[in-house]
């Protein structure tokens, strides 16, 4: 072919490809702001609260309760996802909630409740949950340690909150460890890094 090839169709197609790729990447990264799924989850929650279904749990005393309105005075729940055998992240989460509980007790802040919810239903029986509660001196009036009452309830809770739990290959789990702020109406309104637990409490106290 010796005639000059028309470039217009090619340029149009290349422009289309470029535009589609830009749109797809922008959609995925929420406008190029979040390149990991965890960052995207936090951004989404910060911008528009995420509704969580009511979840039935079994607490450390073996009682069944339904979150998020189990406590009439609660204005906000600070929720962490744990498994009680966890050697690292959950211990940090536990001691941070313990500090927060202490400051709530000292300052007399009303309406903030804590929940440590286990995703390891097979191992975390009420007895194990009670052991965990004792270890961090959880006051049952302020701090609920529990596990969803059924596998279906657990799956729904994890899916709705965007928490992903994977086996770590050593018999434990890896999971996005964070402090989730949930209103009594079941709206997940903010997610804080573990290190920012003070800010999480300050935020929850304003709700």
């Amino acid at each position: 072919m010796s005639a000059p090839r028309p470039m217009l169709p090619t340029l149009a197609a290349a422009g289309l490809v470029l535009g589609a790729a830009f749109a797809a990447a922008s959609f995925l990264t929420l406008g190029f702001r979040a390149f990991t799924a965890e960052d995207a989850r936090r951004l989404r929650v910060a911008e528009a609260s995420m509704p969580l279904s009511p979840v039935e749990i079994v607490d450390a005393s073996g009682q069944r309760r339904t979150l998020w309105n189990a406590d009439p005075v609660a204005r906000a729940w600070l929720v962490t996802f744990v498994y009680t055998r966890c050697p690292s992240a959950c211990v940090a989460l536990g001691s941070e909630l313990q500090q927060l509980q202490a400051s709530v007790q000292a300052s007399g802040t009303k309406g903030v409740r804590f929940a440590s919810l286990s995703f390891d239903r097979a191992y975390d029986t009420p007895a194990e949950l009670a052991r965990y509660a004792t270890r961090f001196r959880a006051d049952p009036a302020l701090w609920t340690v529990g596990a969803p009452a059924s596998d279906a309830a657990l799956r729904t809770l994890l899916r709705e909150s965007g928490v992903v739990v994977i086996a770590d290959g050593f018999g434990g789990y890896a999971h996005n460890a964070a402090i989730h702020v949930v209103t009594p109406a079941g709206k997940l309104v903010a997610i804080f890094d573990m290190e920012r637990h003070r800010e999480a409490l300050a935020f929850a106290s304003t709700l």
Binding site: V17, L18, A24, A25, L28, A34, F35
Partner: peptide, 17 residues
């Protein structure tokens, strides 16, 4: 177009999200 498409698609699937 083909090279552009292949380059963008492979780049996209390197994004952790």
């Amino acid at each position: 177009t083909g090279w552009l498409f292949a380059g963008l698609v492979t780049a996209f699937w390197m994004i952790p999200a």
